[in-house]
């Protein structure tokens, strides 16, 4: 069966509106992916490490530190230990504290501790292990920072999802208004078709298919407009992926585009690729709902 059985959709600026929404959604998703990656890296960096300060003026400090180090190496769950001697700590603090008195042969003005940075798995009682050998040691678990960072990360991810949801809501509203205006403008034709015996689904189906098609077109246009921005971001990101890598050359072929975009997370690329189809689905559902509700006013 071909030929019309229902009025079409007077599209107006629907594809352009959807294109803009797709662009915004793409940017929000890119931001969301970045925030998620950042939150995860904060989490993994902070959650499994502890800093142990050992006072150098304690009795037999050197030999007890060596023993503690050996014990930590043998403790199940401890994955790495790093020793910062007072000299190393002093050199690290030099920019803030000024040059030490070593060159002058004078004793240091500050009594700096030996610092142990311990990376460990969850569930081990590091405090018990350390204090059994070195009760004077001060332990600072980075876990509490991890919790704060996790909270911050979750809040940022939540904000990003809220932005994506708002964009989707505005897109639905735009499609809804366009469809409603179109149906109202063609009220007479809709009434004629209804009177001749068209079912509500027959009338809404064609309008919804057209809305889906235009939304798909708008989505593809939006992705096209987003591509240069994504390329720019990908070129900025490339050095962070591999510190030895040079920024990719300007992409002037499809293969070069593909290589440049491969720097971006696959999950982001998949989400971006699905945007036009999501826009089409939203367009279809919105148009169906709006037309079916509108038709309820007819006898």
């Amino acid at each position: 069966m071909s030929g019309p059985i229902s009025p079409g959709l007077r599209s107006g600026s629907l594809p352009v509106l959807v294109a803009l929404m797709t662009m915004l959604a793409g940017l929000a998703l890119a931001g969301l992916t970045g925030i998620q990656a950042l939150a995860e890296s904060w989490n993994t960096a902070a959650q499994s490490s502890a800093t142990i300060e050992i006072p150098t003026d304690a009795d037999h400090a050197q030999s007890r530190t060596d023993h503690l180090l050996k014990t930590l190496h043998e403790t199940p769950g401890v994955t790495d230990t790093k020793l910062l001697t007072p000299e190393k700590v002093r050199s690290l603090l030099a920019p803030w504290l000024g040059e030490t008195d070593d060159k002058a042969g004078k004793p240091p003005a500050l009594s700096l501790p030996t610092v142990l940075i311990v990376r460990h798995e969850h569930g081990i009682d590091l405090e018990a292990v350390v204090h059994a050998l070195f009760p004077e040691a001060i332990i600072e678990e980075d876990m509490r920072w991890s919790i704060r960072l996790q909270r911050l990360g979750r809040s940022l991810v939540g904000c990003a999802w809220l932005a994506v949801s708002l964009i989707a809501a505005v897109a639905v509203l735009s499609v809804g208004i366009t469809v409603r205006r179109s149906v109202s403008a063609q009220r007479r034709a809709v009434e004629i078709i209804h009177a001749i015996g068209a079912t509500d689904r027959q009338i809404s189906g064609k309008i919804a298919r057209r809305a889906a098609g235009l939304s798909l077109l708008g989505g593809i246009m939006g992705l096209g407009a987003l591509a240069p921005i994504l390329m720019f971001l990908a070129r900025l990101l490339a050095p962070f992926q591999d510190q030895n890598a040079q920024p990719p050359p300007p992409a002037d072929t499809l293969a070069a585009w593909s290589a440049t975009l491969s720097v971006l997370p696959h999950s982001l690329l998949e989400m971006l690729a699905s945007l036009p189809f999501l826009a089409a689905l939203l367009g279809w559902l919105t148009a169906q709902s709006v037309v079916l509700v509108w038709l309820r006013r007819l006898p």
Binding site: G3, I192, Q202
Partner: peptide, 19 residues
Amino acid sequence: YRLIGEWSVFDNVALPLRL
């Protein structure tokens, strides 16, 4: 008459069969 001006005469008349 209540014909749909945007459609051709053929499409107007064929509508009941298409439905």
